[in-house]
């Protein structure tokens, strides 16, 4: 057929990311991959859901970012990364005296507010299990998330946390470092012990993935 060797499952980028040909990455220009990250088949990354609410400072320089991913992350088959979205409270609310009836406050809040997505940030050595849907705001380093989980909108998962298989992490939940979270809805069910921390290095896993 062609002079090139047989096409493998993964495309390797300059920075060492291994991206499956069967992954579904939308809005590639708005996604940052830190390098050495593995993206398996059928993973969906929604880079098209950009922030539409104007940022107060910084931004405006360079490309807008919808999904930022660090180094040595591993996204298993069929998981999805989706920037979270919410209503942003309107300024019109301040026009009302605080004694005004609540329905009026609600009414103005919706009237003066807009919907916007916010960037999804993932640090280094993050493992995400198969079929998990992530709409978190922030995931710290060395976090491991099991299979079939749902990570609610704007959840914040701090370093070294573990999320067990099938957990539903409610929206806006903050998971402290070194905690183990499980159940529906997700609750802290334990702590990661000292000895286990070594298992959170994904460099070996990365090396094991190849064509």
């Amino acid at each position: 057929m062609s002079k090139k060797p047989v096409k493998g499952e993964y495309i390797e980028t300059d920075t060492g990311n291994k991206v499956s040909r069967r992954s579904q990455i939308i809005g590639t220009t708005n996604i940052i991959l830190g390098g050495k990250t593995v993206i398996q088949a059928e993973v969906i990354i929604r880079g098209d859901l950009l922030r539409t609410y104007p940022s107060s400072s910084s931004e405006g320089k360079g490309n807008p970012v919808a999904v930022a991913i660090g180094r040595y992350c591993f996204f298993s088959r069929g998981c999805e990364l989706r920037p979270p979205g919410k209503m942003y409270k309107g300024y019109l609310l301040f026009l009302l005296p605080s004694s005004s009836p609540s329905y009026l406050q609600h009414e103005l809040m919706v009237f003066g507010s807009t919907f916007s997505h916010y960037p999804l940030k993932i640090a280094d050595h993050v493992l995400i299990g198969p079929g998990t849907i992530v709409e978190a705001a922030l995931i710290g380093s060395h976090v491991s998330i099991g299979a079939g989980c749902v990570i609610g909108k704007f959840a914040i998962i701090k370093d070294y946390a573990r999320v067990l298989d099938g957990t539903v992490v409610p929206p806006n939940m903050v998971i402290p470092s070194f905690s183990v979270v499980g159940g529906r809805p997700g609750r802290v069910v334990g702590e990661v012990s000292e000895g286990e921390v070594d298992g959170f290095d994904l460099r070996e896993v990365y090396r094991g993935v190849g064509n």
């Binding site: 098209d48 859901l49 950009l50 539409t52 979205g85 209503m87 609600h106 009414e107 919706v110 507010s113 807009t114 919907f115 916007s116 997505h117």
Partner: peptide
């Protein structure tokens, strides 16, 4: 608050149509 929720869905749609 169902009326407000419907309005919020409409706002969300406004944004998605642009994206």
């Amino acid at each position: 608050v169902e009326d407000l929720k419907l309005k919020m869905v409409a706002r969300q749609i406004d944004v998605l149509r642009r994206l």
